[in-house]
């Protein structure tokens, strides 16, 4: 339970950075922190005390493997989620580069005035 709460502190700090800062790159950093903390939370849910990794080695007993193995289903979800996070970061960086080249600043409140 303490580990869950520590993870939710990281998530909360990420959301604070996303809504309270005005620099565009800080907002991107906030989103990256949120993604890290959510992926970690999903894997924390599937952990079994003194468990072993869900990979069979030759000559291992399958019944004991099913009793001691860690849950493989959250790992399958998180594997795709990490690579999707990279694609989203590339898209956000593309926006930021174009915005900087047009308005010459990263500050959100200056861009919002729509100088054109």
């Amino acid at each position: 339970m303490t580990v869950f709460m520590l993870d939710m502190i990281i998530f909360g700090l990420g959301i604070y950075c996303l809504i309270a800062k005005r620099h565009l790159i800080k907002k991107i950093i906030g989103m990256v922190i949120i993604e890290y903390s959510v992926n970690l939370f999903l894997i924390l849910l599937g952990y079994r005390m003194q468990g072993i990794a869900p990979i069979l080695s030759p000559g291992q007993d399958i019944v004991e493997f099913a009793k001691k193995g860690v849950d493989p289903l959250p790992q399958a979800l998180v594997l795709t989620s990490i690579v999707i996070g990279l694609g989203t970061l590339a898209l956000m960086s593309a926006y930021t580069i174009k915005l900087y080249e047009k308005y010459k600043t990263f500050d959100m409140s200056e861009i919002r005035k729509l100088r054109g």
Binding site: V83, L86, A90, S93, A94, I97, K98, E101
Partner: peptide, 21 residues
Amino acid sequence: KVGACLYAVFIGLSIYGRLVL
């Protein structure tokens, strides 16, 4: 697929993004 598309987006970010400027 994943290797080619991430290399292509790196080309895009480093070369394409500067031509309009």
